[in-house]
Design a binder for these strands. Sequence first.
RNA 1: UCAGUUAAACUUGUGGUCGCGGUUUGCUUGUGAUGAGCAAAGUGAGGAAAGUCCGGGCAUCAAAAGACAGGGUGCCGGCUAACGGCCGGUGGAGGCGACUCUAAGGAAAGUGCAACAGAAAUAAACCGCCCGCAAGGGUAAGGAUGGAAAGGUGAGGUAAGAGCUCACCGGGAAGGUGGAGACAUCUUCCGUCACUGUAAACCCCACCCGAUGCAAGUUUAAGCGAAGGCUAUGUGCUGUCUUUCACGCCUUCCAAAAGAAACGCUUGAGCCUGCUGGCAACAACAGGCCUAGAUAGAUGACCACAGAACACAGAACUCGGCUUAUGUUUAACUGAUCGG
RNA 2: UGGGGUGUCGCCAAGCGGUAAGGCAUUGGACUCUGACUCCAACAUCCGUAGGUUCGAAUCCUACCACCCCAG
Length: 103
Amino acid sequence: MDHRLKKDKQFSYVYRKGKRAHSEHLTLFSVASKFKTYKIGYAISKKIGKANQRNKLKRRLKEIVRTGNFAKDNFNYVLMAKVGAAELDFASLKAEVKKVFEK
RNA sequence: UCAGUUAAACUUGUGGUCGCGGUUUGCUUGUGAUGAGCAAAGUGAGGAAAGUCCGGGCAUCAAAAGACAGGGUGCCGGCUAACGGCCGGUGGAGGCGACUCUAAGGAAAGUGCAACAGAAAUAAACCGCCCGCAAGGGUAAGGAUGGAAAGGUGAGGUAAGAGCUCACCGGGAAGGUGGAGACAUCUUCCGUCACUGUAAACCCCACCCGAUGCAAGUUUAAGCGAAGGCUAUGUGCUGUCUUUCACGCCUUCCAAAAGAAACGCUUGAGCCUGCUGGCAACAACAGGCCUAGAUAGAUGACCACAGAACACAGAACUCGGCUUAUGUUUAACUGAUCGG
RNA sequence: UGGGGUGUCGCCAAGCGGUAAGGCAUUGGACUCUGACUCCAACAUCCGUAGGUUCGAAUCCUACCACCCCAG
């Protein structure tokens, strides 16, 4: 199943209604939904780095969410990266994602 | 060994365990219709994919031609689909050298500008020098400047001076020879050898350029209506104008949608190998190969071995260049030192 | 992806071949018992960076860097 958020409307809905949880390099927006599974979108701005760095960060976040089982069903998420997130290695990035979801 | 110049090559590979995007095949399932899921096979970023600085293809503007404006290029010859690119030369500049760099047409077609300094900035007004009692005349040596002051140095010459004369150097013109040409070289003549620099100032000359960009554009796509204006004096290549030519054109309102999907989209001036022509860029021929097409936008995570690969960095219609960022290796050559 | 624009003092900015205006801010001084206002003075030589043209470049040319805007 596809767990991605894609439409612009969905993103802006989550930004407006969602609860926020911050960490040093990440921000998570979460909101309850009527769907049975979870959906998650990734927001990585141009401030973070050049195109290849943004791509790599997105791939790593996707891998962490897929393998980690952090996301709960019946929720929509947007995971936003802040400046400096691209410099982290995989293990510490995973720890931060875990912290944000627990909040 | 050190310092340097030039030219190339590569940009990870193999094996595991999870995961992603196209393609093909098979199975399951479903709709009014497009479909959806699972499995297997096979495949999946670069030398710069970047900057977007040039030039093509392609698409639309109904079709075509011309003038002006505007823009670009600028030694010569060649290559190319084309170029502001590349190759080979010429002149000039730099370097001990290997070698590198070079917007390099025209200033006697015209116009503009040249601050400050300096007597004077394109010009012989001033100081000066000489002749002369003076009036006046001769002169361009000298006059702390400046980027630039009407060839330079030396000798002769003179009232003082001066290409006034001579030697050397520089400059110009004509002709010959070599070369495809840029140009090179030789001979002769010129002291009227007076006219500085700047064209990456306007400009002149030669050559080139229609505009807009895949968010172009086409289809699914379907369903039309109402009112008003201009009627060949209207509209049309989109900076202006003209000609041929084409034809209805423009504005407002109502309805529908609110922005969906597919095509464009990857077979192309393509890549590899061989051979022929050419100094080379490149071209011709033969054989072989098919090699990403996404749309919140596909390559990641954990190991093992090899290893320099741990750098710079991610396709978005596509191709040829340029520029910039950056890791490693190789070859040839140059200079210095030491040894033989 | 394509198209367009801007970089000048700490901030806002003028200048577009000949030694870089002005305002705010800052610093020092004067005035005042003190402060504000006012007055006087100081403050750019790396004009985003690097080359080139020119006697001379913020200005002209070329290549880069950074930032901003427009088009679904």
